[in-house]
Design a protein around this nucleic acid. Structure first.
Length: 419
DNA sequence: TCTGGGGTCCTAGGACCC
DNA sequence: TCTGGGGTCCTAGGACCC
């Protein structure tokens, strides 16, 4: 059996751990740059606030209903997530961290209904007690079914936050009521396709001919179909594979026209991307830069992208920034107000297999030491304690985060004061 | 005024090789 | 008239996820 633990309204719940006064009050969390709503408390959901709504379009109702608003605080959410994962790992040894607020459990050994439900409850109670985050648990034979079971656990508190979806009769009953569009792996386009063939429930999809599914939805759809029919084809992946692409980008707080500002931002994002690269002990040999103006504006839209093949795979921040700048030079055009710049590292290989070119800089060892020193200092004293000068001092292009909560758990100066 | 960011997998088609 | 067969690698685009 497979379990899916999913934190309830995770970002909102993280904020509430340190602000218990917000319990019962509607709360929302905004995306980077305070752009969209990306998390909502149940109260906010019932007020009709939709996921992904631009903040500015709901200002009125936020005021009227006295909704608490937070900028996103990933330092906090990431740390809280790790704590939850570690806590659960001590109870169930085989698990897959699927996202910041979700994990799959391998419950292979457990088969008794009662035992499964008890374990689910124990997990919920422990993370609520130890970390303060509420969660629900869905249990079923496959990942896709566990996802559906989790929906059910969340939907009605009748089940006390744990739902076991097992047995032909129960499956038929719940899958008939479950919208095909809400199945994990069925997105907007497939939902549209299925609806146009009068398939609206998960049960109807499960009864479609396999050939039809394969033909119209490729093997991806076929796997979902199998999973829905109780045959597991998606395994628990305990080890997170190394990333094949690493992307860092942000929108500016205000549109930027000067190349100098874009360079600062680009150097900053490249530094971040290089850190991610070194953390997974990899090197990249392709570097892509993209820039674009705001497509929602009336002014003429410009966007461009360039991919540079690096002379040799590298994880060196200064090398990457140098290449990024030459790329920017080529796609930057005067006279536009840019909204965003970003960098993507790809062609990723393990750092040990570095393929040295004959032109490789002779001070390689020194550079490696430098990166190691930077990472060590920044890990100990906080991000950006030391950084490359090209990232700028003022950074007045930086994204807007007006209502961000303290980083309670990761920065000494933000530690919660009790008295 | 104001619209997030970071990923994965699959397929088809072209270039190229022997 | 008639124009091989079997592969690999790469890329773009489409689908999806949180």
């Amino acid at each position: 059996m497979i379990g899916l633990v999913d934190m309830n309204n995770f970002y909102v719940s993280c904020e509430r751990v340190f602000r218990p006064d917000l319990e019962g009050r509607p709360v929302v969390v905004l995306s980077n740059n305070d752009g969209c709503i990306i998390a909502r408390s149940n109260e906010a959901k019932s007020l009709g606030i939709k996921m992904g709504t631009p903040y500015h379009s709901v200002r009125e109702i936020i005021k009227q209903e006295n909704i608490a608003v937070f900028s996103s605080n990933y330092a906090l959410y990431g740390d809280m997530s790790q704590r939850v994962m570690e806590t659960i790992r001590s109870m169930v040894p085989t698990l897959e961290v699927y996202s910041i607020d979700e994990l799959f459990l391998d419950l292979g050994g457990f088969n008794q209904k009662q035992k499964l439900l008890e374990l689910g409850q124990k997990i919920r109670k422990t993370i609520k007690k130890h970390i303060g985050i509420p969660a629900c648990v869905g249990i079923a034979r496959t990942k896709v079914l566990a996802k559906i079971a989790n929906h059910q656990a969340k939907k009605s508190m009748m089940h006390d936050g744990v739902f076991l979806l097992e047995g032909e009769k129960l499956m038929r009953e719940y899958l008939s009521l479950f919208d095909v569009a809400d199945i994990w792996g069925i997105g907007r386009n497939y939902a549209y396709l299925l609806h146009s063939h009068e398939v609206t429930s998960a049960e109807q999809f499960r009864l479609m001919p396999e050939n039809w599914v394969k033909k119209h939805m490729t093997v991806v759809g076929q796997r979902i179909w199998w999973e829905l029919n109780g045959h597991a084809c998606l395994e628990i992946e305990e080890i997170t594979p190394h990333k094949k692409n690493i992307c860092t980008s942000r929108s500016f707080s205000k549109p930027q026209t000067q190349q100098g500002k874009l360079k600062e931002a680009l150097a900053t994002y490249t530094s971040r991307a290089a850190e991610k690269l070194r953390r997974q002990k990899s090197c990249a040999h392709l570097l892509t830069i993209f820039i674009h103006t705001n497509k929602f504006k009336k002014e003429k839209y410009y966007s461009n992208t360039i991919t540079i093949t690096l002379p040799e795979p590298t994880d060196d921040t200064t090398q990457l920034i140098k290449q990024a700048f030459t790329g920017l030079q080529q796609i930057f055009q005067k006279g536009y107000a840019y909204q965003k710049v970003g960098v993507i590292l790809s062609g990723i290989s393990p750092a040990i297999q570095k393929q040295l070119s004959i032109f490789s800089p002779s001070d390689r060892d020194k550079r490696e030491m430098l990166m190691l020193a930077m990472d060590t200092i920044n890990a100990k004293f906080g991000s950006d304690t030391v950084k490359v000068a090209a990232t700028g001092i003022e950074q007045d292009w930086k994204m807007q985060q007006e209502i961000v909560s303290p980083r309670y758990t990761t920065h000494w100066k933000d530690l919660l004061k009790v008295k």
